[in-house]
Amino acid sequence: MMRFVFFLILALLFPLAASAADATVYSILYLTKDYKTPPPLSLLKKEWTDEGLKGAEFSAKDGDLAGRLFKKSYVVVPAYLTENEAISALSERDYLSQYPFIVADLHRDDLLALAVLPETQQTVIFNIREKDDTLRTDTCLQNVFHLIPSRAMYADALGQYLKWKRWQKWFLVQGKQPADRLFATALTRTADRYGADIVETRDYQFEAGNRRMETGHQQIQTQIPMATQGAPDHDVLVVADESEAFGLYLGYRSKSPRPVVGTQGMFPTAWHRSFEQYGAARLQKIYEPSRAEA
């Protein structure tokens, strides 16, 4: 995902670079923080700590291939902050004014703090992480360009497909975390927009044990049917669990045999390898490792 959105950045910057007469090097700041993330539910899932940066660097390298015709080059400069370090620390270092473009791999509050700094008022900031809807409405800023879809966009994409399938009765199960509630709110908006009926909204109340242990797995097998029983008649089980606390285990374990959609099961996404239109085949091909690298 990070690689995909950064390639779009280069596509936007390329016409700007091509208009210059002299050879130009475009320095792009990649800014992120060392945010704490929960451990993966499975040991088989590899944790990536530099996915965004590697995607940015590879995309810049690919952009240079076309840039050679116009004597243009792209350079990605990474900047990492600790989770508790203030964005204003970069301002104190007189650091941000050097970069006309910033790729912001930041959470909402940090993204807003970056966008309102005096040094970034003439900077184009590309948001590649934050899905918050208010950044596109109430707190929309003119120097922030959103490459990642918002929660409302994801929910609408899902709602359009469910309407096409005529699965209009939704049983919504939401998690406890703020992000889970925000996506549930987006789903409620989508239901109203496309004429779906949320027959019930239910909080997932159970606390799963260690899911890597046998006892934890048995606990899940027991909890999921209990958590989903007694719901009114519904076509789909819609889950809002961005924190991945329980949603992965709803499939094939719910009390009623219904499709699971939302953050798990069938989920909306900005990119998928099966999508082959609009140059996607080439975009996917360039990121495949060569045989020498494999």
Rank of each mutant, 00 (worst) to 15 (best):
F6P: 01
K33M: 04
F6K: 06
E200C: 06
T228P: 04
T188Q: 13
K71A: 13
D138P: 03
K165L: 11
A18D: 07
S254N: 04
I125Y: 03
K255F: 13
K72Q: 13
F275V: 12
L248I: 12
Y287S: 01
E214T: 09
V116C: 13
L106I: 11
D22E: 11
G52S: 02
L111T: 02
P149S: 06
Y99N: 03
G63R: 08
P40D: 02
E242C: 06
D156K: 09
L43E: 13
S256L: 12
E276G: 00
Q168L: 14
Y249T: 02
H217Y: 15
L237S: 00
R129Y: 14
E207C: 06
L43Y: 06
L90R: 01
Q205M: 09
T190E: 07
A60K: 02
S254G: 07
I286G: 00
L114V: 09
D192L: 13
A152K: 02
S97H: 11
Q160H: 15
A60S: 07
N84P: 02
R151N: 08
F7P: 00
Q219W: 10
Q264H: 11
P149M: 04
P15K: 14
A20M: 12
Y287H: 03
E288Y: 09
F206H: 13
Y194R: 08
Y99K: 03
S254Y: 01
G251V: 09
A179I: 07
S88K: 15
T49S: 10
T222G: 05
K255Q: 14
E200V: 15
G216D: 12
Q121A: 08
V260Q: 04
G159M: 05
Y26E: 08
S19R: 14
K46S: 11
L112R: 10
Y26S: 05
N143P: 01
P78T: 09
D109T: 12
N143S: 02
Q121P: 09
L141Y: 12
Y80W: 11
A270G: 08
I125F: 04
Q122A: 11
A179K: 08
L172Y: 01
L141M: 14
G195T: 06
A18N: 09
R181C: 01
F70W: 10
A227W: 07
E293W: 07
K176L: 05
R68S: 15
F58I: 03
L135Y: 09
D203L: 14
D156I: 04
Y30A: 03
L13N: 03
F70Y: 11
S290H: 06
N210L: 09
